[in-house]
């Protein structure tokens, strides 16, 4: 987290109004799966370091099309800005057509971060469902760059089909490490698939963590997060050691537009990363 708290010399700051995007240049566009892609961005002007904490998001503006909140999927301690997302709406579909040299607008970083500092000396179990892996990647990088400070580190990753697995090479590298365990499971297998089949919650029993001393970080569809949190609690993980990242409609990202309200919370500024105990009652109230 040092990189987040201290301000390195290669940092630029935004001085304009909070609703004014700053131009960033697409340095690289990479297709990840059929409908997901990664953008590597650099500020058009100023220095390349983008200071953020793992779990935070940016409002990404595509010229004339619109702006959407997208979590940052890169490492907090390396230059540049990385976003990985799925083309599902008007704006993300336009993003999927960007190419090297194109400009996008960036506002951020916004929101709360993963408790990577509090997690020190704990076992860390990271659970990602589908497109939930990118928001967790920054936390994984932070933990791995201070690996000796943590107990067991386990990544449990569930996706729809084998073709939907993101960051395959990186997952292989992580899996090859002796100090990290990676379990992947798919909901629907094809006949060539020799890996795990079943929902991500079934992996929790395989993770072998010390429940009394574990921090869990979860991102995925809300239903998946609810069941995952319950599975951890069933295994005696403390409810306030479970963290999850929420998604809501956002128009401003800074607590002014009202769209992301979740009970009394503004997901954009009180979240997106919440302690499970903060929101567990809201999670089971429909249409809150």
């Amino acid at each position: 987290m040092a990189s987040v708290l201290e301000v390195p010399s290669d940092t630029t700051f935004v001085s304009a109004g909070p609703m004014v995007p700053r131009p960033f240049v697409v340095k690289r566009f990479r297709k990840e799966t059929d409908d997901t892609f990664t953008l590597e961005l650099e500020p058009k002007e100023g220095r390349s370091r983008f200071v953020f904490g793992p779990g935070q998001f940016n409002m990404v503006y595509v010229y004339g099309v619109g702006e959407v909140p997208i979590s940052i999927s890169g490492s907090p301690s390396t230059p540049g800005l990385i976003h990985t997302t799925r083309a599902v709406g008007t704006v993300t579909k336009a993003m999927a057509k960007l190419k090297k040299g194109d400009i996008v607008g960036i506002r951020g970083p916004y929101g709360t971060t993963w408790p990577v500092k509090e997690a020190r000396s704990h076992d860390v179990v990271i659970v990602a469902g589908g497109i939930g892996l990118p928001p967790l990647r920054g936390a994984i990088y932070e933990i791995l760059s201070n690996r000796k400070d943590y107990g067991k580190v386990v990544l449990l990753y569930g996706v729809r089909t084998p073709a939907d697995i993101l960051f395959k090479d990186e997952l292989e590298q992580w899996r090859a490490r002796f100090d990290m365990e990676v379990f992947i499971t798919v909901d629907r297998a094809v006949s060539e698939w020799r890996g795990n089949v079943g929902v991500v919650t079934t992996l929790i029993s395989k993770a072998g963590f010390d429940p009394q001393n574990t921090i869990a970080m979860i991102v995925g569809p809300e239903v998946m997060m609810r069941f995952t949190a319950l599975e951890f609690i069933k295994r005696s993980v403390k409810p306030d050691s479970i963290y999850l990242s929420m998604e809501r409609n956002m128009k401003c990202g800074i607590g002014l537009c009202g769209h992301c309200q979740f009970g009394p919370m503004f997901v954009c500024k009180d979240g997106p990363v919440f302690r499970y105990t903060q929101i567990k009652d809201l999670l089971v109230k429909w249409e809150i």
Binding site: Y61, Y63, V65, E67, R248, N249, K251, C257, G258, H259
Partner: peptide, 30 residues
């Protein structure tokens, strides 16, 4: 509550971002 609308002029050379009052009673809101 407010929303933000993005528009471009016909030639596509100028884009505007406009804030407009919004309401939690619309379906789009959430």
């Amino acid at each position: 509550c407010a929303t933000v609308e993005d528009t471009t002029d016909l030639t596509g050379t100028e884009a505007q971002r406009t804030r407009k009052w919004d309401s939690c009673f619309t379906m789009d809101f959430s």
